[in-house]
Nucleic acid binder design. Structure first.
Lengths: 344, 344
DNA sequence: TTGAAAGCGCTAACAA
DNA sequence: TTGTTAGCGCTTTCAA
């Protein structure tokens, strides 16, 4: 049986009201009483029952996060870092974090509704926005506190943090063009994800800007996984006139692309250039190290959490729509186009 | 203002008790009343306040998980899959999952205490046990429901799921010995982690069993990261008499080891053999594909969650100490030792 | 400076 | 079959 405020009150010979006030540092309690109550409470190992506090205060001091997972072998180095950012910031604010894992779809929406309607959380973090995002629509419609990692198509009158994928992609393509590449392929993330559109726009704009041809056969769609990057790259390299550079919509796919290229004897960074997006820790340690676009994912997690809690507390939030400029990280995988290829 | 049971009661003209019973499908409510109540509740968009239910029932229907994170760039493909397993199983049972992220140490213990004493969770999952594990000691001492992923040194009178790392490592070393390797190095995980000891024992036993020398200079300690595997391998390869095979304590380190070897021109799977442990999705897609020991991490997550919930509900749990046999996955990274090396 | 009392939203024993 | 009542553990009026 856990010790309650009643037990403490009985022990110190005061009312539970006084104990509550002493513990919450109210002014109208004598310092002797305060000291006594605190000592006894500590001795007895008293910790307030959070559930009772919540019911009384009508808030949960908890934020929710529904991770969109795809299948059992869901394994994304991106999310773990993101989660660490959110988790640490949330704890720093004294909030708890309620996590669900659901594949996009009905069950996912159900998870959102349960959290909202059961008043389990005071706010939600929506991650990896879709172009048409039912989660954002829902939360916006009912006016429930939330922040999103990513934008959506249409009106942007909600709080979000996003990375300017268009600019990031432009930098990447520009860099590859400077290296002498003219046939640049792009493996886009699933097109329903909002950032896919963003990066695609950047890719196309930069190609045009650099005076390069937009060959439709060099743009394929992948699934953000290593395997998918591998498969799509095999296809690209089997073309009659294969690309000399491949940009993948995320690092995981880029790593898969590297493997596909290496398997057929190409030297990545010499015979072919490959680049990714995210700058996951492994990018730096790939062989060769992967050129990519850095997203400060841990920081973004912290920002989102802090922003959401300020919104919940109705404090000054500052900028509600944050668009971060990503930075190009040039490593060896995007080397100069070789003579033989250039001649081809 | 969210709709409460009171609102529903007023609307149907019944007492809140009747509404509660109708909604919870008690036998002693007429089917007409039940139907009416349910219809009205649905119309009004009523969802029970979980906090109030919890306070009344004196349980949270929530399980807790404190992820041990190391620094901001915490990025482990292992954990995301593990989390998916736990999350999905937990949701299937109608439980919620409360997640914290803390580096091992005082703050971590504090997170455990807060969850327990604030009655925020009905049980906890302890992940990545240490040889001497204060989390396990604490939970055991106070008799709070928990399950652990991994064993500890000493008495094992608590529920856990673990993978038999000793057997896994034996298989791996045996395999390498069969490939003709005699100088096999081992990059061990941090020695305070329980599974490190386990795998080390397997490594040493298998070496002896195979009649191979245990050269102390070939056993080094890494930090489970890609970077660490890379650095330790550089050191191993710089030895006067370097190993022909390197076993890493996890896949991330093995991937780092591969890079270090490749950087100095070694062909992994030909000039040198490299193997890992875990079988993360990326292992299959490494270049060359990584020989490793498979841990069914998603399944382990599900098992732990199911086991914990049964313990909480005081149901039949079945086997409380589960030791899974891992399986060797032979891929190309552990090829035969080449002639030149064998002669050296 | 303290305590009594009400009430957060719900469930459940008991009575009718 | 239904309603009354009590109470989960806490905070917060209000009164003393």
């Amino acid at each position: 049986m856990p010790v309650t405020i009643k037990d403490v009150a009985r022990r110190v010979g005061k009312s539970i009201t006084t104990v509550s006030r002493a513990l919450n540092d109210y002014d109208d309690v004598s310092s002797e009483t305060k000291a006594l109550v605190r000592r006894v409470a500590a001795e007895m190992g008293y910790t307030p029952n959070r559930t009772a506090q919540r019911l009384q205060k009508r808030r949960s001091d908890t934020i929710g996060l529904v991770l969109p997972t795809y299948g059992p072998r869901f394994s994304d180095p991106f999310f773990s870092e993101f989660l660490a950012g959110i988790g640490n910031q949330t704890a720093d604010f004294g909030y708890d974090l309620l996590v669900s894992t659901r594949a996009p779809g009905d069950e996912e929406m159900e998870a959102y509704r349960r959290k909202v309607q059961g008043r389990q959380v005071d706010g939600l973090i929506v991650v990896r926005t879709r172009q048409q995002d039912p989660r954002v629509d829902y939360l916006r419609r009912i006016g429930f506190p939330f922040v999103a990692f990513g934008r959506v198509q249409g009106t942007l009158d909600f709080p979000f943090v996003d990375v300017d994928g268009e600019q990031g992609m432009r930098q990447l393509v520009r860099h590859l063009a400077e290296q002498g590449h003219r046939r640049i392929a792009y493996i886009t993330p699933p097109s329903n994800l909002n950032f896919a559109q963003d990066r695609m726009a950047g890719f196309q704009a930069a190609m045009v800007e650099q005076g390069l041809a937009l060959d439709p056969s060099l743009v394929v769609e992948g699934e953000l996984t290593h395997r998918s990057g591998y498969q799509q790259t095999q296809r690209l390299l089997a073309l009659a006139d294969p690309p000399t550079a491949i940009v993948a919509g995320n690092d995981l796919m880029a790593l898969g692309a590297m493997r596909a290229a290496q398997e057929i004897g190409l030297r990545v960074g010499a015979d072919i250039a490959i680049a990714g997006f995210d700058n996951i820790p492994m990018a730096e340690h790939a062989h060769p190290p992967l050129t990519t676009v850095d997203q400060p994912i841990y920081t973004i997690g912290r920002m989102l959490s802090a922003m959401l809690i300020r919104i919940i507390r109705q404090e000054e939030v500052g900028e509600q729509q944050v668009l971060l400029q990503p930075s190009l990280v040039v490593r060896q995988s995007s080397g100069l186009v070789t003579q033989s290829k250039e001649g081809g």
